[in-house]
Design a protein around this nucleic acid. Sequence first.
RNA 1: GUCCCCAUCGUCUAGCCUGGUCCAGGACGACGGCCUUUCACGCCGUUAACAGGGGUUCAAAUCCCCUUGGGGACGCCA
Length: 464
Amino acid sequence: MTTVTRFAPSPTGYLHIGGARTALFSWLLAKSQGGTFLLRVEDTDRERSTQEATDAIIEAMAWLDLAAEGTAVFQSERFDLYNSYIDQLLAAGRAYWCSCTPEEVEAMREKARAEGKKPKYDGRCRELGLGPGAGRVVRFKTPQDGVTAFVDKVKGPTAVQNSELDDMILRRSDGAPTYNLAVVVDDHDMGVTHVLRGDDHVANTPRQILLYQAFGWDVPSFGHVPMILGPDKAKLSKRHGALSVMEYKKLGYLPEALVNYLARLGWACGDQEIFSREELVKLFPAGNLGNSPSVFDMKKLEWLNAHYIKESAPERLAALLPEFLGDTDGLNLDPAYLASIIPLLQPRAKTLVEMADMARFFLLPTDKLVYDEKAVADQLKPEARALLAELLPIYEEASDYTDHKALETATQAFLDARELKFKAVAQPLRVALTGKTASPGLFETMCVLGKAESLARIKRALSL
RNA sequence: GUCCCCAUCGUCUAGCCUGGUCCAGGACGACGGCCUUUCACGCCGUUAACAGGGGUUCAAAUCCCCUUGGGGACGCCA
């Protein structure tokens, strides 16, 4: 039997970090077994589900390259299917109509709570033999004794007394199915063999297993991934920073860095830290899925991102960079030119936002170059200017701006002749060329800028 | 309140199932150093953990029990 997994988000917001991780794990589980990964949109709650959220989730999954087989299944389009199964349960005496109002049920729960018991619906309509009617719901006749057990793929053996469970609603008074019913019907109907989902669903699992049994269906294997915490160990939320996957794209992260990071959060395979997509697919079953919650660590994500930036082809980064540049007015965005500066930035940038920031001085024309005032004051003192003025003819004479070593040698020769240290010109020259005191190597920078631009910048600096 | 789950460096984790090779390994971070034309990269090193208490055993991070701490679930949300 081939493995079929699925990711089943409810479209009430963007795809967040936790959802992305369970989606990734489900995807990996399927792919590692040569199986199929499906997407199902759980939009039975029409009040809270939106098209924008659906689009946002699909966009984020595409960015992470978590492709689902075929087209997504929308629960909102399958109400007839759910109702036919509810009818089946009703006919078999495994479900019943209930006329209790939400207020009445709330009162029962309140009472139970006050008595120190678990808040539950008390089953008062269970044997009334009620039929359909306005405001009525269908409830599942949960077995009142016995134990429902399953072996959780990540948490191990789990069991719950059926007496802990109450008669859950299957069909709401407005005719819409509830989550637990729809999930079971869909997972069965879609042929899902392995359900990997968030920790918050453990408690639902016994209820769902009871439904599988009532229908006489095979029960899939379940695994519950612990949730992701913020630095304060509380459930990760907006106040901890970016929660949305697409927010990380805006922050200048590469999708493979996020994927690698998410994979290692709650999963490990020996001491390995860097995983290509192929390795992840191959090693996923060999690794361990942890069963305790983990804290999201931006620093480690940054480190991975820096790693993937270094590994990326300059052409690729050149194509991604413009959207991080902000105001691109007057910037030289020629793809080939961008690609030529990127190798100088790759070891220095942790994100594309940082890279764009560092790239700016390369892209600005000389007359628009912004000189840092303090840098000019500190580094372009009279003696330094005199040296630069003397250096100018040397750089004018040099013809090969593809060989930074040659420029360095020429500079060194000039300094040797006057018994000067390299430091005497390094920072002044850097400020002249870049406007700043920190930059990539001087001569590499000159080569990328080209002869005309390099000379123009030195001249402009001399005129400041 | 009731039920369930979790517990190794600050963080992610290896080791735990199949006790000894673990005075606990790797990585991120932090700190220090080297390299060096700046900033980075890179390299080297330091820091730092088996929550606590009882057992079992010749031997426990590993097995058992209790305590503490953390989390989750208890919807006509998913």
